[in-house]
C-alpha cells in the first residue's frame, strides 16, 4: 500500500530525513519509533504530500505522491499531531466538512459521518461544539476525521500526546481495530509501549535515519538475550556508570539523568555486585528496575541513548 524509497529532506544545512526507505502492506500497522526531532513528522509530511522531498519517492496504492498530486490524496487519511478540528463547529459538522472536502457527495458524506461518530464513540455528542469536548474526545474526533473518506492508508502522527490514560487506551484500541479491518496504518510515536502493542513492524528512527526495522521480536533479538537494568542514584551517576562499565559482565552502562542504564545478561545474578560497585563509586542507590529485552533496550543499544531523550 505504501512504498517509501530513499526519502531525503534538508532544511538549510540540517538534514531532517536521510535516505529513509520502508513499505507497508494492506492490513499492516507500521510504527515509526524515535525520540522527538528524529525526523518522524517530516517523513510523514512527505508521505502525506504536504512537503516536497529533496530526493527519493513515495508511492501510495501504486500512485506517486507529491505536493502537486491531487487524486492520490483521497487514499490517505492524515491525522496530525495537533487536534486539527474546528472548535466552533460541532463534531458532526467537522466530519461533514472534511468528508465533503474529500469529494464525497452530500448523502454519502452524511452516512460516513454517522458511521465515524459511532466508531469514535461520539454519537451522543454529535451536535455539540468540539470546544466543549475533553482532550480525549477531541483526540478521538481528530482520528475520526482521518477516517472519514475510508482511506487505504491512515497516517497517525503521535495521536496520544497529552491524552489521559483512559482515552489513550480507547485510541489504541481503535487503532488495533483499524489494522484488523485491513487498513494500512503508519503510526509514529516516541512511546515504546504503544509501538509494542500496536505495530506489526517497527522502524526505528534517529537523527533523520532509519537505523533498524523489523518485527518487535526481530528488533529485540538484535540486542541478544540481555537484560536492561535501571539504577536510579541520588548523585554522581556519571561516576557510577563508569564504575559499572568496568565490570566484565556489563556490556554497556549509560548515564541518563541520575539513572544508570546497564545492559547485561542475567541481571539477577549480578545485581548485588553492581550495587556494591555503585556504592564504591561514591553514589547512593535510590531504586532499581530490571527489564527484559524490549524496544527501549533496542534503541539504547542502537544509539547509546534513551528513547525519551
Amino acid at each position: 500500500m505504501l512504498k517509501v524509497e530513499r526519502l531525503k529532506k534538508s532544511f538549510g544545512g540540517r538534514v531532517a530525513v536521510n535516505d529513509v526507505s520502508f513499505h507497508i502492506e494492506e492490513g499492516e500497522t507500521y510504527g515509526l519509533l524515535g525520540p522527538n526531532g528524529a525526523g518522524k513528522t517530516t517523513t510523514i509530511s512527505m508521505i502525506a504530500g504536504l512537503l516536497s522531498a529533496d530526493g527519493g519517492s513515495v508511492v501510495v496504492g501504486g500512485e506517486p505522491m507529491s505536493v502537486g498530486a491531487v487524486g492520490v490524496r483521497s487514499l490517505v487519511g492524515y491525522v496530525p499531531q495537533e487536534i486539527a478540528v474546528y472548535p466552533e463547529l460541532t463534531a458532526a459538522e467537522n466530519l461533514l466538512f472534511f468528508a465533503r472536502l474529500q469529494g464525497l457527495d452530500r448523502k454519502l458524506a452524511a452516512s460516513r459521518v454517522s458511521e465515524i461518530l459511532e466508531t469514535v464513540g461520539l454519537r451522543d455528542r454529535a451536535d455539540d461544539p468540539t470546544k466543549t469536548f475533553s482532550g480525549g474526545m477531541q483526540r478521538r474526533l481528530n482520528i475520526g476525521v482521518g477516517l472519514v473518506q475510508r482511506p487505504k492508508l491512515l497516517i497517525l502522527d503521535e495521536p496520544t500526546v497529552g491524552v489521559d490514560p483512559q482515552s489513550r487506551n480507547a485510541i489504541l484500541h481503535s487503532v488495533e481495530q483499524l489494522g484488523n479491518e485491513g487498513l494500512a496504518v503508519l503510526y509514529t510515536t516516541h512511546y515504546m509501549e504503544e509501538a509494542e502493542r500496536l505495530c506489526d513492524r517497527i522502524g526505528v528512527m534517529d537523527e533523520g535515519s532509519l537505523i533498524a526495522e523489523g518485527t518487535q521480536s526481530e528488533l529485540v533479538s538484535t540486542v541478544g538475550e540481555r537484560d536492561r537494568v535501571e539504577i536510579s542514584v541520588v548523585s554522581l551517576s556519571a561516576a557510577a556508570a563508569a564504575a559499572l562499565a568496568d565490570l566484565p559482565f556489563v556490556e554497556s552502562a549509560t548515564d541518563v539523568e541520575n539513572t544508570v542504564e546497564v545492559l547485561l545478561s542475567d541481571a539477577g545474578t549480578h545485581l548485588a555486585e553492581m550495587l556494591a560497585r555503585v556504592g564504591e563509586a561514591g553514589s547512593m542507590v535510590r531504586g532499581v528496575n530490571i527489564h527484559q529485552p524490549d524496544l527501549e533496550a533496542v534503541f539504547l543499544n542502537l544509539t547509546g541513548k534513551a528513547l525519551r531523550d
Binding site: R73, Y78, E82
Partner: peptide, 16 residues
C-alpha cells in the same frame, strides 16, 4: 497552520 487544520486542508484531494 498552528492548529494543524491547514495541513489537513492541504492533505485533502484538492489543489493548494
Amino acid at each position: 497552520r498552528r492548529d494543524g487544520t491547514f495541513a489537513r486542508l492541504l492533505a485533502a484531494p484538492v489543489s493548494r
